[in-house]
């Protein structure tokens, strides 16, 4: 009796492990900043990944259905073409940290399917370094 249970549970575990492995291979995305991608050279082309950087000021343009902008990090920058169907997040604008899910094509343009911009739970502002300015109440 016990043996049959162990076999039954074993089967479930093996099936789950198999599914997990398959799903993992499909779902995993390496996360790279622009400068890291530049260092990878041609190896970066064609692999699905997440590209992270800062949205360059004034670079956001809408061209029909495609949204174009430039991501930069540590002096390296990539032109991004967003072709995904979801609306871009509300937080997406000039100067924010953004992460784009997609692939780098042969011309060095990053084709994105999904955009994330600085997320809500990271929202808290660090007041440690903030300084009072004119108009603030400095009476203790």
């Amino acid at each position: 009796m016990k043996l049959r249970f162990i076999i039954g549970i074993g089967l479930i575990v093996v099936a789950v492990a198999y599914l997990a492995f398959q799903g993992f291979e499909k779902g995993k995305r390496y996360y790279h900043t622009c400068d890291e991608v530049a260092q990878m050279g041609d190896k970066a082309i064609g692999h699905p990944m997440k590209l992270a950087g800062i949205v360059q000021d004034g670079s956001i343009q809408r061209d029909g259905d495609i949204l174009k902008f430039v991501l930069e990090y540590e002096g390296t920058h990539y032109e991004v073409q967003y072709v995904g169907s979801d609306p871009v997040p509300d937080t997406f604008k000039d100067g924010v940290e953004a992460v784009v899910d997609g692939t780098l094509d042969r011309n060095g343009v990053f084709v994105g399917q999904k955009i994330q911009a600085k997320c809500a739970s990271k929202y808290e502002v660090d007041y440690e370094d903030a300084k009072p300015t004119a108009g603030d109440d400095t009476t203790a």
């Binding site: 997990a20 799903g23 779902g27 995993k28």
Partner: peptide, 14 residues
Amino acid sequence: GKNVTVGPSYFSMI
């Protein structure tokens, strides 16, 4: 040291 994420397709698959 590698930064990797696991997307929704992993979760829906399993």
